[in-house]
């Protein structure tokens, strides 16, 4: 796979009367983001050397970020809101719990993904006929159904007692949480690469136009429902991967990990991050997962402050964290220009 090189820049800029601003759009080099993620992950492990608590928090952030990448595509590209994605987390989690030790990690991950995708395509074909809000309600039912099944199908899930002794992904000769963290970072880099590839592909563009203007998309030959199912299936893939990581980190699979709260977290992460932005899953997961942990020094006021912060983001940054980044970036640039003069 080669990175797409920006095209006839010479010809385009030569014709441009006003130069730089109107050039061929900067197509992100799609390896940039994975490379940055891997680099930061390595720095955290080798330089920062976090303690056990911090490392657990970082790993959970990475796991949720993995799961949220697909959600970012679903909400940000396709404009579909689902509140049932904990079902796919559970599919990946329980598949890992049941299969990782007897069958090995690859089988466990792949079967988790397969189950999640089958569920997503079936549910998508059924539910995506519905209009936006009804689809959300339908997926809520789907998520709740998943929790009920996890609690009661004791033959498969061992009910509320859960499945323990699930092992973990061993990478780079590391052990314990460190290894899970490294694996989560690698998987995150991989799904981010997929996300960026999808965004710049015709399918990604079709998803976008299907979100903005379905009638126009139809007139362009885009099958909007099919695009939505593809996005839903992609969200199931990353959710299954994230679910497997969450289970490894917790040391077992329990129904409580896959409740509606998890679904809501998955929904909030890309929205807080700035839906559709390629960094939204990671930034959103930092805010939604890590921030409450580091506000523990506030004791009883922790959730109050956290709630106020999230509300403030929703009120003042409707574009999510991305908006804040963009604004400060352009402010910095204009400052830099002034300084140069």
């Amino acid at each position: 796979m080669t990175a797409p090189t920006p095209v006839p820049t010479t010809a385009a800029t030569a014709a441009a009367p006003r130069g730089a601003t109107d050039g061929v759009p900067a197509r992100h080099w799609r390896w940039t983001q994975p490379a940055v993620i891997l680099l930061v992950g390595a720095l955290v492990l080798l330089v920062l050397r976090p303690g056990p608590f911090d490392l657990r928090v970082f790993t959970l952030v990475a796991a949720y970020a993995v799961a949220a990448v697909g959600f970012n595509v679903l909400v940000g590209f396709s404009g579909v809101v689902s509140v049932g994605n904990a079902l796919f987390l559970a599919a990946g989690g329980y598949a890992w719990a049941r299969l990782a030790v007897p069958q090995g990690p690859v089988v466990a991950l792949l079967s988790g993904i397969a189950v999640a995708v089958v569920l997503a395509v079936l549910a998508g074909m059924l539910l995506l006929r519905l209009r936006a809000y009804y689809f959300a309600v339908g997926t809520l039912a789907l998520g709740t159904l998943g929790t009920i099944v996890a609690r009661n199908w004791t033959g498969l899930t061992n009910g509320d007692a859960g499945i323990t002794g699930v092992g973990f992904l061993q990478v780079f000769g590391l052990t314990g949480v460190t290894s899970i963290f490294a694996a989560a970072i690698v998987i995150l880099a991989l799904v981010c690469l997929l996300q960026e590839t999808l965004r710049t592909s015709p399918i990604g563009l079709s998803m976008l136009v299907g979100r903005y203007d379905p009638p126009m998309a139809g007139a362009l030959g885009v099958r909007v429902p099919a695009m939505r199912i593809v996005a839903f299936a992609f969200s199931a893939v990353t959710a299954a991967l994230g679910g497997a990581l969450i289970v490894q980190l917790a040391g077992g699979a329990f129904p409580d990990q896959f409740t509606t709260t998890a679904s809501i977290n998955l929904l909030i992460i890309p929205i807080i991050g700035g839906r559709g932005w390629r960094w939204a899953p990671l930034v959103g997961a930092l805010i939604v997962i890590a921030l409450p942990e580091y506000l523990r020094f506030l004791d009883d006021y922790r959730l109050v402050v956290y709630g106020a912060l999230v509300t403030a983001v929703a009120l003042f940054l409707p574009g999510g964290a991305q908006q804040a980044f963009r604004q400060s970036w352009s402010w910095l640039r204009s400052r830099a220009r002034q300084v140069r003069r």
Binding site: T2, P202, S206, V222
Partner: peptide, 30 residues
């Protein structure tokens, strides 16, 4: 403008970044 290009069977493969995606992207851009 690229949105107007005819859909192709290989779109889905391109979406997961299989080889040739970059070349197809260049062709579309051109």
């Amino acid at each position: 403008v690229e949105l107007g290009l005819p859909r192709r069977g290989t779109d889905l493969l391109e979406a997961i970044g299989l080889p040739g995606a970059a070349r197809a992207a260049r062709r579309r851009r051109a």
